[in-house]
Design a protein around this nucleic acid. Structure first.
Length: 297
DNA sequence: ATCCAGGATAGCG
DNA sequence: CGCTATCATGGA
């Protein structure tokens, strides 16, 4: 992998400052990575996507084995997209059952990104009992209203507002972003982080169980949302968030004709069946099931 | 119109 | 412990 010369022909019509990365194999699927429901603010733009990595505006485009990044310096992008994860090694540990292999074939190239912790926590607080399209709308509304304005050529993008910013927002203003009952929880979370009552950076060194318990101190954060943050921001690749899609999929594929498998049993199964990268396996199944549910396998 | 959405939680038995 | 109603909003 090398950051080489600028290729002005491929660097999109708007000619962003860009670096080009050659991928070793077909080991990235940018579209699935950005649209699989782990992150919610990337917008299609021409042949690529625009968004922010933390507070840096970025244009991303994939053309076969070539990744074009409209940003100064590739290191930020490589880290965010986790291009150092070895997908061959990771996917080789997946179980051999039919559903898992179908999901693997469908999703290959999807990567679990390294998301900034606060925006991951905040966004998943707003995800409770919402469809992905609505989570996107809420995330983008909060960004454009309260985030930093970022310029990428003629485009204006917005970062996710820092906790200190959201901590002093009035509840009615936040409610205009259509959060509903989640607004209170988001405000409380912002205040906990801004006050130092919850130190998100310190959690990086905690064992997973301890980090999960800390995250669950935030109102509106239970086991599922905490697991999303552990997987998508803290790189705990063995952690499995169990939502309605995963529950329904597990139930149908791995516990057929058993009425209502208890949550504790699903959790135990998820922790033992899928191996050391269970979180990765889960995300492949989630995305595969969610996009193909009506089609019945 | 009715049900559901990448849930969490207080209140009940 | 497990079960249930409820929360606010929009899409299917």
């Amino acid at each position: 992998m090398e950051s080489g010369a600028i290729d002005p022909q491929k660097a999109c019509a708007a000619s962003y400052p860009s670096v080009v990365c050659q991928l070793p194999e077909c080991e990235l699927d940018l579209e699935k990575t950005l649209n699989c429901g782990q992150v919610f603010h990337w917008l299609p733009h021409g042949p690529g996507f625009v968004g922010a990595i933390d507070e840096v505006p970025v244009y991303l485009e994939q053309s076969g084995r070539t990744l074009i990044a409209g940003v100064d310096g590739l290191e930020l992008v490589r880290s965010y997209l986790a291009l150092d994860h070895s997908l061959p090694e990771i996917t080789a540990t997946f179980p051999r059952d039919e559903a898992m292999q179908a999901a693997l074939k469908f999703c290959y190239g999807l990567r679990i990104v390294r998301q900034p912790v606060w925006e991951c926590l905040a966004t998943f607080i707003t995800s409770a009992l919402k469809q992905i399209q609505q989570i996107r709308a809420i995330s983008l509304a909060i960004r454009s209203r309260f985030g930093l304005a970022l310029r990428l050529e003629s485009l204006e993008l917005h970062s996710y507002p820092r906790p200190e910013v959201l901590a002093v927002v009035e509840l009615p203003d936040l409610l205009e972003c259509k959060l509903g009952f989640r607004a209170r929880n988001l405000l409380t979370a912002a205040r906990m982080v801004a006050d130092g009552e919850l130190d998100l950076e310190k959690l990086r060194d905690h064992p997973t169980d301890q980090a999960r318990a800390e995250l669950c101190r935030v109102p509106g954060v239970g086991e599922k949302i905490a697991n999303c943050v552990l997987l998508f921001a803290y790189e705990r690749l063995d952690v499995v968030p169990i939502d309605v899609w995963i529950r329904r999929g597990f139930q149908e594929i791995y516990f057929p004709n058993q009425a209502k498998v208890p949550a504790i049993e699903l959790r135990l199964f998820s922790e033992t069946y899928f191996g050391p990268y269970a979180g990765y396996a889960q995300q492949y199944l989630f995305h595969y099931w969610r996009l193909n549910y009506r089609k019945r396998l």
